[in-house]
């Protein structure tokens, strides 16, 4: 019973509503489209950062990467713990990674390999580590060793029992746990303690600090060495020995390492950015951020357990880095 007027009105309404729906739909669709080129607009940093190298530097580097990744959502960093030498020879000097971490300076063979492949790099100091010699906490007969005694235990033709090291020590066999030969810790230990004598092969070799700790806590007559971080986080599980370099025994700690008293086992840790990679803005920015963070006490000392760099070292490193970036980008 609808009148013609009514019919007209509904017709218009229907047409109007159709138009409204259509325009709303068009608007909706417009909001539901994207462009085909990925849409990484703006000057936001983006790109991958590939890092490999020392397992000692790994916790420090990955902590800094974590913060950097949080601040720059476009950057995609990854890190592999390969050991200093493994990282140089397998990945860095073949041009596959942007940074290589090392717990000792780059060695001549590695320099040669990098040069052969045309990989240029710059050396940055990341932090200072105190290489820590540990024994079982039940071993109350020992508190410190001199560097000579340490060398006797670890040299390539080592003494077999503790009483050969020092007369008052028990007549028990020495069990050794140490770093594997791909590790920079191993190289540094040879350089600082053993020198020409070389490292014994008669020990349990591993890249995992945890394995060394497990081994040493398993026997009262075991001895092991690794970076400071593990001992710093688990001071009750193991007993760190004082090292006597002629001026009386010094125990490893953040203070003795940064003041230079803990010799000869406090060592600088390095990272080597490749100059070609520094040409990319996000990698250069990460390298700057890294150097800035090396003085961050909460992060370097608190979270990881290494000695932060001093302000002067940081200044120098920053200068070296800026020169390298200039060389790469200029």
């Amino acid at each position: 019973m609808a009148s013609s007027h009514d019919a007209d009105a509904t017709g218009i309404t229907r047409r109007k509503s159709l138009a409204a729906i259509a325009s709303a739909g068009a608007l909706g669709l417009a909001g539901c489209t994207q462009s085909g080129d990925g849409g990484d607009g703006g000057d936001e940093l983006s790109g991958p950062i590939n890092i490999a190298g020392s397992s000692t530097v790994f916790p420090l580097m990955s902590a800094i990467m974590e913060d950097f990744a949080e601040q720059h959502p476009g950057v995609d960093p990854d890190i592999s713990s390969t050991g200093s030498g493994g990282g140089f020879s397998n990945f860095f000097c073949t041009g596959d990674t942007d940074f290589n971490n090392a717990s000792r300076p780059i060695q001549p063979e590695e320099e040669e390999l990098c040069a052969d492949n045309g990989v240029e790099y710059v050396e940055l100091i990341a932090a200072t580590d105190a290489l820590t010699v540990v024994v079982n906490p039940d071993a109350d007969w020992i508190d410190s060793l001199t560097t000579e005694e340490l060398a006797q235990i670890w040299k390539s033709d080592p003494v077999q029992t503790w009483d050969e090291v020092r007369d008052e020590f028990p007549n028990e066999e020495i069990e050794r746990f140490g770093a594997a030969d791909t590790s920079g810790t191993y190289d540094y230990f040879i350089e600082a303690i053993l020198g020409e004598e070389g490292h014994t092969g008669d020990y349990q070799a591993t890249e995992q600090d945890n394995t060394i700790a497990q081994g040493v806590s398993g026997s009262e007559y075991a001895i092991g060495y690794f970076g400071f971080a593990y001992y710093f986080q688990n001071p009750d599980q193991l007993k760190a020995l004082g090292i006597d370099d002629g001026d009386g025994p010094v125990e490893p700690s953040l203070e003795t390492a940064s003041s230079g008293e803990y010799t000869p086992l406090s060592r600088p840790l390095f990272t080597y950015p490749s100059i070609e990679s520094l040409g990319e803005e996000h990698i250069a920015e990460f390298a700057r951020y890294f150097v800035e963070q090396t003085t961050n006490e909460d992060l370097v000392a608190g979270d990881v357990g290494y000695v932060p760099a001093t302000e002067e070292t940081q200044e120098e490193q920053l200068q070296t880095l800026e020169d390298a970036i200039e060389q790469a980008q200029g």
Binding site: M65, E66, D78, S80, T82
Partner: peptide
């Protein structure tokens, strides 16, 4: 995976 250089840690 270690041999082919897979990353130990990635953040994304």
């Amino acid at each position: 995976l270690i041999m082919i250089g897979a990353a130990t840690t990635v953040f994304r």
